[in-house]
């Protein structure tokens, strides 16, 4: 594939996509959309709106019951192996098991070693890239520290560094800002924004709260079990649309030329 052809292939392309939860309930239905690459895409919506399901479908962890989704032209079911080579994934923080005595360096190196064939030995380059990724989120001093002993925000920064240390054109992050302190949030958002600019990768991020990443985001998918809105952050911040998704308590405010959304949901999210 030449570079020009690659540019023409959308980052994500879904047609009539429907996905069920393992319990048989419909999580997503009638999703049809297309997003150009490269992009910083945010997937937003209230709890239980199918945000994580969409990501898991893209990664090939869940299968559509109807329709399809393609990632850079590769079908999520048929070409899942190809997609897995392109992807670097950060799951929700509480999906990381803390019973294993991992150090910060072990977690970051995991980002590189998971994609290596066995026996997955650590090379000098792996270490170097891992260290520079930790520098981007200001965690390099904790290189040797036990991962389970870090605070929630610090753990999340290390997980983001794991993705930054890896290889692959697409970074997928599930709720990397949920339940983190303001400092960590700022650090993560800026590290991702800068990384995307420097390395020309695409980022797909599930989030409760669009506001912290507003200025970096190019495309927004607003979900409520189906696609409710798509566009730039300010397009999606339409008072009508937001109230329809988040309920009447949601407000849209304008600040410094950007539209921000205030919901009881995001409010809780940002202050814990």
């Amino acid at each position: 594939m030449t570079t020009e052809e690659q540019l023409a292939v959308p980052l994500l392309e879904a047609q009539d996509l429907a996905v069920k939860y393992p319990n048989g309930e419909l999580a997503l239905h009638d999703m049809t959309f297309s997003i150009d690459a490269p992009s910083f895409t945010a997937i937003i919506g209230p709890n239980g709106s199918g945000k994580s399901t969409l990501i898991k479908t893209i990664l090939g962890l869940m299968k559509p019951v109807h329709g399809f989704v393609r990632v850079l032209g590769h079908d999520s079911v048929k070409d899942s192996k190809t997609i897995q080579r392109l992807i670097r994934y950060v799951p929700q923080r509480d999906h990381i098991e803390l019973t294993v005595p991992m150090r910060v360096k072990d977690i970051v190196l995991m980002g590189r070693l998971m994609k290596k064939p066995p026996p997955r030995f650590v090379s000098g380059k792996d270490r170097e890239v891992g260290k520079s990724a930790l520098k981007r989120v200001d965690m390099i001093d904790l290189w040797d520290r036990p991962f389970p002993e870090l605070s929630g925000g610090q753990r999340q920064r290390v997980l983001v560094a794991r993705a930054l240390a890896g290889e692959g054109q697409i970074l997928v992050l599930d709720e990397p800002l949920a339940g983190t302190d303001a400092e960590s949030q700022k650090m993560i958002v800026e590290a991702l924004g800068e990384y995307q600019r420097d390395f020309d990768v695409s980022i797909i991020m599930v989030t409760h709260d669009l506001n912290p990443i507003h200025v970096f985001v190019k495309h927004v998918l607003l979900l409520r079990n189906t696609l409710v809105g798509i566009g730039t952050p300010c397009d999606v911040m339409d008072p009508e649309l937001i109230k329809r998704v988040y309920g009447p308590a949601a407000e849209v405010v304008e600040y410094a030329g950007h539209r921000y959304c205030i919901t009881p949901d995001s409010g809780v999210d940002r202050h814990d």
């Binding site: 962890l61 897995q84 994934y89 995991m110």
Partner: peptide
């Protein structure tokens, strides 16, 4: 001894291990 990294990664982050092609 041969597969200890694999077992560790599967224990730490099962979803992530699959998503990265393991």
């Amino acid at each position: 001894l041969m597969l200890n990294k694999e077992f560790v990664y599967v224990s730490v982050d099962y979803e992530g291990a699959i998503a990265h092609g393991m």
